Amino acid sequence: MLSKISAAYLLVFAGLVQSAHAAAATIGGPLAALQSSASAGQTRYELGAVVDARNARSSGVKVLAVTPDAAADRIGLRASDQLLAINGLRLDDTASPSSTLERGLQEGNGALRLEVMRDGRKLLLSGRAEAMGPGGTQSCGYVTDQQGVVPKSQDIFNVEITQIEGRSTPLQSSNRHRVAAGKRVLVVRELVQESYLNSSQLQQIRKMKKFAFARAYKSFVLDVEAGMSYRIGARLIRQKLDTQSIRDNAYWEPVVWSKVPQSCP
């Protein structure tokens, strides 16, 4: 049974429309998750926030999305905050914001001390990062953009999942992505079949994607149940195919079009 993704949709600035994965191959990628890069056997720490880590400025790096109920949410970090420092490591004007974020999380050993800018005011936030034990022993589920046949008769089409909790999905095709149970932030781009649109609509969509990069992708929060697999698609909204709605990227929305049990050891 088709179900709409819970939570509001967030437009995410994810780099060039032509290839999110190509952009992610650069240092840090266009988006970065606030997580450590601990090696196998070590505890990994996660904050549960997605930031635009392509360019650090004097105002820091922008927080694009916060996973509900994760550490970032609990300590009061918000989407649109500018992150200036993590555990004493500066992020404003740093040459490598992604690696600095990861290093700050790992060196903090779970402790979090964030300096943020919000509405022109500096704030200090503190708490604990999420500890991810070695071996992935958490309860888990799956998300997929490839399993099953999307119900095009219901105006549901394929998507590409480009980010999960801020981490770029693999460059090579993957049948499914394993995720920890709980609320997770996914970033997707629509792959609506062109034959279902007229030439004028296609022209407007291409123009929007070319000049309004931020509107090429959408992020949303999915509450993942353990032992379940979620098939993600894009619903084409027929009543919003006018020029202005296309410019606003309002002509589609992410949906879970199927949810099936799938064991996740």
Rank of each mutant, 00 (worst) to 15 (best):
L112M: 08
L114M: 04
L114C: 03
E115Q: 03
V116C: 08
M117C: 06
G120W: 06
G120M: 03
L123W: 01
L124F: 00
L125P: 12
S126H: 11
S126Q: 12
S126W: 14
R128D: 02
R128N: 09
E130S: 11
A131Q: 05
P134D: 04
P134L: 01
G135R: 07
G136C: 01
T137M: 00
T137P: 01
Q138W: 10
S139Q: 01
C140S: 05
G141S: 06
Y142C: 10
Y142W: 09
Y142P: 13
V143Y: 03
Q146T: 07
Q146G: 03
Q147R: 14
G148Q: 04
V149I: 07
V150E: 08
V150L: 03
V150R: 06
V150P: 12
Q154G: 05
I156W: 09
N158W: 03
V159T: 12
V159D: 10
I161G: 08
I161L: 13
I161S: 10
T162E: 15
Q163Y: 15
Q163N: 15
Q163M: 14
I164R: 14
R167Q: 14
S168R: 15
P170R: 04
P170D: 14
Q172A: 12
Q172E: 13
S173A: 10
S174P: 07
S174R: 07
S174K: 07
N175L: 06
N175H: 09
N175F: 10
R178W: 02
R178M: 04
A180T: 09
G182V: 11
K183S: 15
R184M: 06
L186G: 12
L186C: 11
V188K: 04
V188A: 11
V188C: 11
R189G: 15
E190P: 11
L191W: 06
V192P: 06
